[in-house]
């Protein structure tokens, strides 16, 4: 299977840049196009590519069910807890200005955390859904 060999080599080359690009989109979303939603999807697509080329079982070893499910719930939890942290520090729910001494830095911190939560949930959801559809118990 010569095609399979080419596919394997090319995808091995491609997967690390895809993940790196996802992280770039995640943390550069404040300045250019991008953000948690896109980054999550790109991150998940790296896993999906791996699963398509190397088989579902191998991919499940890299991303076991408990890991993706935890990722799925932790993202939403992080988002909500940033909101609660705003209340505890004396502001409103999801008010980031109180997270740091300087409101602008607080806003920036809050947005970064929240985008990270969004990215975690989206990538967790996409990986979970893909594995379920690919016959494998999610």
């Amino acid at each position: 299977m010569i095609f399979k060999a080419i596919l394997r080599v090319v995808s091995k080359l491609l997967i690390p840049p895809i993940m790196l690009f996802a992280l770039y989109v995640q943390f550069h979303g404040d300045f250019g196009p991008g953000g948690g939603f896109q980054a999550g999807v790109i991150f998940a697509s790296a896993f999906i590519l791996y699963a398509l080329i190397f088989g579902i079982d191998n991919a499940r070893k890299v991303a076991p069910a408990w890991a993706t499910r935890t990722l799925l719930s932790l993202g939403l939890l992080l988002y909500a807890s940033v909101g609660v942290a705003g209340i505890l520090l004396g502001g409103n729910f999801l008010d980031y200005s109180v997270l740091a001494d300087n409101p602008v830095i607080g806003q920036h911190l809050g947005i970064t955390l929240i985008e990270f939560g969004v990215g975690a949930t989206v990538s967790g959801a996409m990986i979970t859904i893909f594995f379920i559809f690919a016959h494998q118990d999610g």
Binding site: G35, F37, V41, V122, A125, M126, I129, I132, F133
Partner: peptide
């Protein structure tokens, strides 16, 4: 629309699961 697209794919997945 940004959020709607991502929600759309999630709901599409749910619809497809129902089809299955």
């Amino acid at each position: 629309i940004l959020t709607a697209i991502v929600v759309a794919v999630a709901t599409t997945a749910l619809a497809l699961a129902l089809v299955v």
